[in-house]
Design a protein around this nucleic acid. Sequence first.
DNA 1: GGAAAAAGTTTCCTAAAGGAAACTTTTTAT
DNA 2: ATAAAAAGTTTCCTTTAGGAAACTTTTTCC
Lengths: 208, 208
Amino acid sequence: MTELIQQDIYPSMLISEDQGDEKIEPVKLGQRLKEIRKSFDLTLEEVSKKTGLARSTLSKIENEQISPTFQVMQKLTSGLQIDIPQLFAPPKQVRATGRRDITRNEEGKPHPTSTYEHELLATQLSNKKMMPFKSLVRSRDFADYSDWIRHDGEEFLLVLSGKITFFSEFYEPVNLNEGDSVYYDANMGHMLISISEKDALILWITAS
Amino acid sequence: MTELIQQDIYPSMLISEDQGDEKIEPVKLGQRLKEIRKSFDLTLEEVSKKTGLARSTLSKIENEQISPTFQVMQKLTSGLQIDIPQLFAPPKQVRATGRRDITRNEEGKPHPTSTYEHELLATQLSNKKMMPFKSLVRSRDFADYSDWIRHDGEEFLLVLSGKITFFSEFYEPVNLNEGDSVYYDANMGHMLISISEKDALILWITAS
DNA sequence: GGAAAAAGTTTCCTAAAGGAAACTTTTTAT
DNA sequence: ATAAAAAGTTTCCTTTAGGAAACTTTTTCC
């Protein structure tokens, strides 16, 4: 996109090329199987011997005339020494998605709990790798928690304002001031309390 | 971020790949399906509605009385919004874990480039899913960039102070003020410039 | 080019999958 | 505890998958 720099061309001024309809992957299993077979340079007969499946059956699967049972698929994967995901991960197409979701200050999706006022960010997008949210830490005593908070994935938090104490299962409690951050495994028990005059505001991001 | 990655690469800057070491093939497809169903707290009837499969069929699959056809497996995965490998990745290996890494304000690892002053956070940890850093946006003109910045993964940014313009390949430029945030696919070209009097400070997190 | 062999497809049959409904077990409500 | 409802299983029947063999197409070799 050199033009953008050289002239003043904005994205909305550009006309996108018609790149053909991207088909949503219905997974052409037969086609995929044929690719694999060819890549090993095998005939149906040879695959038949390796997998114990009839030549005719293999032909029909490759031509999408029948839908193989799981049993058959297991014979295929073990006979051909491949694993199942391989059967479905054919052309690892790195789709240049262009999703973008802006969340203005204070305009996230509110999500209050007994100990936090969460404000979920980027909620217009689903299927994302990270889940960002701002949280007002209302709790001021770890007695507010009945137990450690613990869940899958990893978590990063940054103190935006105020001051908190970060408790965790395997470490001493530690105080965090504005600008401080911590990265931790979220299946290690953890919890927060505000210790500043005003409730602390933090940015939280989870990935799993 | 392209520059960031292309220059010095430290372990703590790397994002851990999904450990796809799945060689295990659960012969217990039915059991696995039941686990998934229970985890969503669904009844056979509800799964039936979601997938279009008969209640009886689902029961038989769960009890290993029949071997579902690929067609049926596709209905299962699309109806339950899971992907196929998930059906075969049963024993979720709970990774160990109690890592924690605190970064005090301004005490991250400096990493200057021509357009940004990056301050890498949580650099004591390697193999993490997210890579967090604060960046001072020094650039004030998109002519400072020779081309779009573009890399794998997804990115989230939050303006900590100042004001920026966020340029991206498929959208109009947009101004972001303190507290505003944006989530986007990083393989969509993107770049930032400061438009406040002082250079803007942002929090940036990448995951791939 | 014309067998003959090899590779692949189609047919035909039986064995198994998938659906509707009957039946059994478990949960909820009274 | 008992009835009613919900969840799950089994039966019975129709449709479809899978294998053996016949058939068609492609390749090999003279």
